[in-house]
């Protein structure tokens, strides 16, 4: 007997009906049962974040329709600046730092790394005639920023936690060592390692145990796998460089606000505001 396959055009993606999309949420029952069984109190947090995801992505779908249609450099750049600002705000909030001191430095860090990356990858490697082309500029910048945010939070969190808990080590190295830069080396190096380790692990198994979202999306959208893989390689490089630059600049700029004129750690900086 012959099986019946639905024949679709290679350049079309099968649409998902709202009903099917809603059915997808049934799968959430499994983790929720697990949370209840292991008494993990994150059900409310999870449901709220899923709700936020639905609202945010729905709004994005509407915004992007217009943004792609207008394709205006100022609007596209403003969109990216807003994304960088939200990233900086989220980092400060999640790490539990003082907004007054760290929002601007973290914004500058995100903005600088994105300018470097977009100029390099979009302008020089992909050689777009119009670097602010919404179809490239916004999704690629968004992917880099989104990934950088996760790694940044891990790295920056580790930096402040260690500085808080191991103050004696910092002062020991500051007083007995040669310079403040040298005294901060162990803290900076461990936070960069902590922040980037998951990304290094992801890159090492990509294609083996994971198929990245962008590549899958491109293939579903009708691109050839070869083109999709080339973009994916570039995106992974951009994500790695973006995360590294963002984290390093964040730490360097944060250092200007962490220490007082005696080189001592300011107490109100490390106070958690969460």
């Amino acid at each position: 007997m012959f099986k019946h396959y639905q024949i679709i055009n290679m350049n079309e993606t099968l649409d998902i009906s709202i009903y099917s999309l809603a059915l997808g949420f049934l799968l959430m029952v499994l983790p929720i049962i697990g949370f209840i069984y292991f008494k993990v109190r994150i059900i409310k947090e999870t449901l709220i974040s899923i709700l936020r995801m639905i609202i945010q992505l729905s709004l994005i779908a509407v915004y992007l329709e217009y943004i792609f249609e207008w394709n205006n450099a100022w609007i596209n750049a403003s969109w990216v600046i807003a994304m960088v600002m939200v990233g900086a705000y989220t980092t400060v909030k999640r790490v539990g730092l003082n907004y007054k001191y760290f929002l601007l430095p973290f914004f500058i860090a995100g903005f600088t790394s994105i300018v470097i990356l977009d100029a390099f990858f979009l302008g020089w490697i992909i050689r777009l005639d119009y670097v602010f082309d919404a179809r490239y500029f916004i999704p690629i910048t968004g992917m880099v920023l989104g990934n950088a945010l996760n790694h940044n939070i891990v790295g920056v969190s580790n930096y402040f936690d260690r500085l808080d808990k191991e103050q004696d080590l910092y002062y020991f190295l500051l007083i007995n060592g040669s310079s403040r830069k040298k005294a901060l080396e162990p803290f900076i190096s461990s936070s960069i390692r902590k922040g980037l380790n998951p990304l290094i692990a992801t890159m090492s198994v990509i294609g083996l145990i994971s198929l990245p979202g962008m590549m899958t999306g491109q293939i579903l959208g009708g691109s050839s796998p070869v083109v999709a893989i080339k973009y994916q390689i570039l995106i992974m490089l951009a994500v790695f460089v973006g995360s590294t630059l963002n984290l390093m600049i964040c730490i360097l700029l944060a250092n200007r606000h962490i220490f007082d004129s005696f080189g001592s750690i300011k107490p109100n900086i490390l106070k958690k505001t969460r």
Binding site: E166, D168, L169, N176, G177, S178, P186, S190
Partner: peptide, 24 residues
């Protein structure tokens, strides 16, 4: 002009040699 030897410090080194490198 000061050397400080704190109590019970956890140093991020595994040997005396690494300590001398850490202290430059």
């Amino acid at each position: 002009k000061i050397v400080w030897l704190p109590q019970n410090i956890h140093l991020p080194v595994n040997s005396g040699k690494e300590l001398t490198e850490l202290l430059d």
